[in-house]
Amino acid sequence: MSAASIKESSATTPASEAPLLVVNDLKTYFKTDRGLVRAVDGVSFTLERGRTLGVVGESGSGKTVLSRSIMGLLPKRDVERSGSVKFEGVELVGADTSLMVEYWGDQMAMVFQDPMTSLNPVMRVGKQITEGLRQHLDISKDHANQTALALLSSVGIPEPERRLRQYPHEMSGGMRQRVMIAIAIACGPKLLFADEPTTALDVTVQAQILDLLQTQQRDRYMAMILVTHDLGVVAGRTDEIAVMYAGKVVEKAPTKVLFSNLRHPYTEALLSSIPKISDPSHTRLKTIGGRPPNLINPPSGCKFSPRCAYATDKCRTEEPPLSAPDSDGHQFSCWFPVELSAKQTAGVR
């Protein structure tokens, strides 16, 4: 039985009519001795199978905590998690760990940023892949080994027989990340989280890994949430993008709409502060003044207002809600959204 057919077997569980993932007003606060850190502060979205959502933000935006909060991979103590996460109609917020264990690996899986620390250094790669297989699919050792072989070749690892017997440190960073992907997709999850999957990798390898994730996502008809700080990474590889700032989604749109018609000043500032390969050398970069937001004592009103070039008194006192989707499916939270003319002066392509 190949890995693909295993996926089929798990996919034949009665699929309800509900969308794969519905996140509604999800909040995740951490209690610290300095105060409550509002890492995720009311995030809502829906994700269907076969679709890819890009979550973009800088450090402190809450993007990493968001994916962990959806998966339920949070510390037990000193965390307040509220709102709703429905996976195929099943509510996961407040669910028992014993239920979550059924989902982890089997229904939803995660590829982490650093493959070196997320693989067990003293366990052979083959064993790390087959462990999850045998736990979730209840198959024989031989069968699991065969599947692991098929998985390794499907993620583009040459000489899979030899690689199965290796330890993580005997592999390059790119190979390790391929192994991580193989482990993540082993049980045919319906939802794959990729949290900065290429940040630790070289640029030529990054391209290969992103291609691999995209191929696997399409072939296996998974939903994928691609978390990154790099707008370039998500541009050509996602269906939809959510831009996060200070624990909130500030703009969300289908990828092409977002890039051609961005409305939130933060998205604009983020795009224009990246040096672009098409710009001539010594082009003066636009910068976002100030610093990322304070998640314990966030600014009143719009969280971006202290750094926003267009902010008015209204922005500093009243927080703009995330607008209802327009005909393009475009949502943003801004009192004075960027107009096309303003964008052109900002030099966004």
Binding site: S172, D202, T204, V205, A207, Q208, L210, A235, G236, K256
Partner: peptide, 26 residues
């Protein structure tokens, strides 16, 4: 040329999988 084509471009009109590039690792 391979390095340049591997850079993710913040432009959804560019299909990243159709670029020229190199396989393998260092």
């Amino acid at each position: 040329a391979a390095l340049l084509s591997a850079i993710p471009v913040a432009d959804p009109e560019v299909n990243p999988t159709l670029r020229g590039g190199v396989g393998g690792e260092i």
